[in-house]
């Protein structure tokens, strides 16, 4: 069975029920609209509006979901040495995200967050964390197009505060 998803720019995407279910947000909306896998009429007569996702971003999300639809539910492993979670980004995912310009990566991350697709969200956030790792402040600012509004005095003050933990 198929489900119709409608983006903010009024594009309709018809996807498999299983793909639609990968998004917690879409799942909840389907439930609220009494749409079920066994009730074709309910799927045909309804479509899910997604006002926070554009056509271009939705196409990327669906591409990711298609690839991962048969994945076993992954257990989040905590890296005990760091005490923080590190997500393993598969080679396919690296390749998938490699060519995205950073602005589009942010859009995709925003969409993954809104649609609640945890696997995609983790992939992107780990990718961005890896991009930041080991870079100097001005390199980070340039990479992410951040306009620095800190005065020299403020920068000095922050540097003073954090001097003890610099490399």
């Amino acid at each position: 069975p198929n489900v119709k998803l409608v983006t903010s720019d009024n594009e309709e995407f018809v996807v498999d029920f299983r793909i639609a279910k990968m998004s917690v947000t879409v799942s909840r909306l389907m439930e609220a609209m009494n749409m079920s896998e066994t009730d074709d009429a309910s799927l045909l007569s309804n479509s899910i509006p997604l006002p926070n996702v554009t056509k271009a971003v939705m196409a990327r999300v669906i591409e990711w979901c298609e690839k991962h639809k048969n994945d076993e539910p992954k257990e989040e492993k905590e890296n005990d040495k760091r005490g923080r979670t590190t997500h393993v980004v598969s080679d396919w995912d690296k390749e998938f995200l490699k060519n995205d310009e950073f602005g589009r990566l942010c859009q995709l991350m925003g969409a993954a967050n809104y649609l609640e697709i945890k696997g995609l969200f983790n992939d992107i956030s780990q990718t961005i964390a890896n991009m930041i790792h080991g870079k100097k402040s001005d390199e980070i600012a340039e990479m992410f197009n951040i306009h620095c509004d800190l005065t020299e005095a403020e920068k000095k003050e922050i540097r003073k505060k954090t001097a003890w933990c610099e490399d």
Partner: peptide, 29 residues
């Protein structure tokens, strides 16, 4: 832009960063 993302998303991102990376990000703006 990175800063257009909701703050809870950025906080999730920071959980994956080391303290030194956080400090350098802190000095960007």
């Amino acid at each position: 832009h990175l800063l257009e993302l909701p703050h809870d998303v950025l906080r999730e991102l920071m959980k994956l960063m080391s303290i030194n990376d956080c400090m350098r990000l802190r000095r960007t703006c």
